[in-house]
Amino acid sequence: MEDKTKEHLEQLSEIRDMMKESTQFLSLSGMSGVFAGILALVGAALVWTDFFEMVSPGYFDDISARNGLLNWKMVIKVGYLLVVGCGVLAASLLVGFILTAQKAKKHGRKLFDSAAKKLLLNLFIPLFMGGLFCVALVLNGYVGAVAPATLLFYGMALYNAGKYTYRDIRYLGVCEMVLGVIAMLFMGRGLYFWAFGFGVLHIVYGLTMYIKYDRS
């Protein structure tokens, strides 16, 4: 009878593993979060002076968006911010991809399995829409709302994608959303919130995940 019990327990754990592995992408690397956080802090440092110059009162007053003329000062400054932001994003994605691919290989899992596809789709749909929304904000001159909006949409994307990977990522999503809302109450201080949300929170999350799932 002892054998039977063991067999039943094994069956149950096998069922549970199959259910979990076929719906969740478990190769997401914790360290990639840490790197993304560090890169975000570097990015924030690069734009620190320009950012606070920009949000100082009257900085863009010489040319208003109302007369329809291109505000070159604004275009260049915002452009620089965008380039740094995109650079941070691209570098983070690249590092994340490499580390995740390594983890998948180590565990003998396929990188682009059905769970990975669902994860990416559910992450990028809200994220992409958020990106478009931010472009619209900039075009209308609401530059100050960009940082809160990116945090809010990123949080929503993470929360949504949480169905398809470690559930813990939802906590990060919630934190980013809350931070986004708070940031909206302190417009013009966006960079602090941005550095905290994309930098500090990523590092904390990444380390937690590394300790919980990757180390061993």
Partner: peptide, 22 residues
């Protein structure tokens, strides 16, 4: 068979190839 059922009970429409691989 247990594995096939475990996968299908939590996923809609799974391709033959994906089952095989999983």
């Amino acid at each position: 068979r247990l594995g096939v059922m475990s996968i299908l009970v939590v996923n809609d429409w799974v391709k033959y190839g994906d089952l095989k691989e999983r």
